[in-house]
Write a protein that binds this DNA or RNA. Sequence first.
DNA 1: GCGCCGACTTGACCGGCGTCAAGGCGCGTG
DNA 2: CACGCGCCTTGACGCCGGTCAAGTCGGCGC
Lengths: 252, 252
Amino acid sequence: MGQDRVTSGRFARSPIADDGDELRFCSTCAFGAVCCDRGVDKLALNELHCLVEHVGPFRAGEAVFRNGDRFGAIFAVRSGTVKTRVVDLEGRELVLGFHLPGELIGLDAIHPESYPCDAVALEPVEVCRFSFPALSTLATRLPGIQQELFRRMSKDIGGKALLAGDYSSDERLAAFLVLLGRRYAERGFAPGTLHLAMSRGDIANYLRLAAETVSRVLRRFQDQGLIKVDGRELAVARPAELFALARPILDR
Amino acid sequence: MGQDRVTSGRFARSPIADDGDELRFCSTCAFGAVCCDRGVDKLALNELHCLVEHVGPFRAGEAVFRNGDRFGAIFAVRSGTVKTRVVDLEGRELVLGFHLPGELIGLDAIHPESYPCDAVALEPVEVCRFSFPALSTLATRLPGIQQELFRRMSKDIGGKALLAGDYSSDERLAAFLVLLGRRYAERGFAPGTLHLAMSRGDIANYLRLAAETVSRVLRRFQDQGLIKVDGRELAVARPAELFALARPILDR
DNA sequence: GCGCCGACTTGACCGGCGTCAAGGCGCGTG
DNA sequence: CACGCGCCTTGACGCCGGTCAAGTCGGCGC
């Protein structure tokens, strides 16, 4: 029941972005939709293949990029979980987000032309690197690519409701679990079960709560029969009630 | 000293985006950098002119677009101040941001393909409308336009630190004033003086505080000699100290 | 095995900020 | 002018969640 077994277990069964088949490209990848689902022609697929560069694996704790590095590329997570964070002058960490396979990181670096945060592996991680100058040049020739970039950036602009509101700890945690569950489900995991690759402290930091509060609320959710917690493995027992708690954050 | 005089005064002296001269285009506008500063050729300028459509004026309280409207265009504020907000099921308002002349709104609507919020005029407002299909088509031919769109979207992704952190009311308000002051300064206002187009309630809502707290903190800042408040007119007396208060939010 | 260490949990206390309530001020309206 | 209505201010009180501290659990190295 150790976390090590859990982690390797997840790894083994993980339906993550895996383009072992080079010509199929990552079916769950950021650009999978462009390449496969939306009928971009073979030429475009080949051009993306020339562009992409596989990087990794990174061990837990290693950085894909660091705050201040000169911006040159965006990345798609292929496998594992990445945490983005900044560290302020006093050394305090501020967690900005968690990124699952198929999700893009580095989009917030285009404007400042340097990465505004660290991207740190929480478990063994592999990524795809897309040189941004090359990608944006490609985007001028392939409108599908440009559209997908616009869409994904737009999505990121809108998606920060969880942190933004003045919500209670119950609402925050419920919404966090619902949203994380959805993202895992999109990646092919069984709905209702999810693995927390990040520590309680990271969750708390991300939700702007104290780690103790996260502990307490999870405990209470379990006592109320909403979820079942076992270390970093979590099962949602009553999705409807959990969603109801998160409703103020999720509908808007 | 009434607010009416203040408002009209601001209007009169406002160095807002104003392209009365059609061929110069808005010098402070969102795409001004593309059109003027970055040497996009006359052809591109003309094409942008064919694309843009002036809309307004809107009276205070009127909506430029509404939550749920089908997405078709992004807008640049030409004059006045726009508030973006959502209203939840119980009718509670949640303020997402304030937008000054030259700033773009509607970028978060590309992905969902419908506007995810209301955009409401806080004072008389004029906007430029850019049909998005036409704009993105244009962007595939003119890399400068595409780059500028990427840059602005990237900036929006990164720029939500104020709301995201678990900061004190002092820090939030100080950062709000510093950032608003900078944006006004970019638009040509005298540094250190700024006009609050929005009510205390809107500020409080945006910062996730109670309106009473905003009142109290502004009062204390004034008692401490940091600022001088007169209704919705505000002068920063000690910018360095105000910045020091906001530092935890602003540097990161 | 033993001991250490970090992650997590649980309890006690307390302070910042929201809530509630009352009152002032400016402005439009009859 | 009197009145009403928002917006804003100010004060009193209470609660949620942060902080501090102690204790537990599980993993790892020796």
